[in-house]
């Protein structure tokens, strides 16, 4: 079997398209490259959705924690403390147990033009359950980052906004929020890298891989077990992760440039690779 055939058979294996059976004997280097790469689809999926959803909640949590109102500040602080103070690994286990215990019911959602049925049993599947856990987790970490940035906004910016007669939501949207993002961006980049790396925990902690469709680490581990040789599959997944990390740095670097475009060159904030691993 040529490597091209392997690619068409196994390229989308992790999302259930293509050959069902995994190679068991005569595992080639190409098999390993293709299947581990196929598993990366899951890692990207988890990271993208958790980050997109988490961005919104993180802003809310940060504003909540900085708020004078105890009804907003205390829940925000507790949320951050619980999700930052405990290991993500345990959070996955715990969430999975909760999801399993939730009664299995379908909820009809009327969209006007069509009705879809949201079923609670989806929560026990990685595509939904794991995204929810990662979303809450990244919201807590990003919320703390944003909170730190909120407190570091130069007083002059806010005074200038007041002088222009801005108040309430307009001041927040035009002045505070962009300044917060600009200050938080380098740390937020690290958070994104970290979140991406944390997606490897999904299939190792509670969420079962359905029909052997797992993420990159699931396949790397499968090959290491099957061939009893860790020196091939693990370096391959390492190469994948390093290259995807570089992509994240490039994408966020573009964002950083945009956020800093009005700032004098010597005051621009630079990104430094400093991820905080493992939660």
């Amino acid at each position: 079997m040529s490597c091209y055939d392997t690619l068409t058979d196994y390229g989308l294996r992790s999302i259930g398209i293509g050959e069902r059976l995994l190679p068991k004997t005569d595992i080639t280097l190409c098999d390993q490259f293709v299947l581990i790469g196929s598993g990366m689809i899951w890692n990207v999926y988890f990271a993208v959705f958790a980050m997109l959803l988490g961005f919104g909640l993180a802003t809310l949590v940060a504003v909540g924690k900085a708020s004078q109102n105890p009804w907003a500040a205390i829940p925000a602080k507790a949320f951050i403390f619980i999700f930052r103070g405990s290991p993500l690994f345990i959070q996955f286990f715990l969430a999975y147990e909760i999801f399993v215990l939730i009664p299995k019911v379908g909820i009809d959602i009327n969209l006007g033009f069509a009705t879809i049925t949201a079923e609670t049993r989806w929560l026990t599947k990685a595509w939904l359950g794991a995204v929810i856990v990662l979303f809450l987790n990244t919201s807590a970490y990003s919320g703390e980052i944003f909170y730190g940035a909120l407190r570091a906004i130069p007083k002059g910016d806010i005074e200038a906004a007041d002088a222009f007669g801005m108040s309430g939501f307009r001041k927040f949207r035009r002045i505070i929020w962009p300044a917060m993002l600009r200050l938080a961006w380098p740390s937020y980049t690290n958070e994104a890298i970290f979140m991406f790396h944390a997606t490897t925990l999904v299939f190792f902690s509670g969420f079962p891989a359905w029909r052997q469709s797992g993420d990159a680490l699931y396949y790397a581990n499968y090959f290491a077990d099957k061939t009893f040789n860790p020196f091939i599959s693990y370096p391959i997944i390492a190469v994948y992760f390093v290259s995807f990390t570089l992509v994240i740095i490039a994408l966020f670097g573009w964002g950083n440039k945009r956020l800093n475009r009005h700032i004098a060159p010597e005051q621009k904030i630079r990104f430094r690779f400093k991820p905080q691993f493992i939660r």
Binding site: H197, A198, A224, A238, F241, P275, F277
Partner: peptide, 21 residues
């Protein structure tokens, strides 16, 4: 840089079996 650029769980799976072998 290599250790920080790769998810740590990969090292936790890799190092013990590599050391053992």
């Amino acid at each position: 840089n290599i250790v920080r650029g790769v998810p740590d769980i990969i090292f936790f799976l890799f190092v013990p079996i590599a050391m053992d072998q």
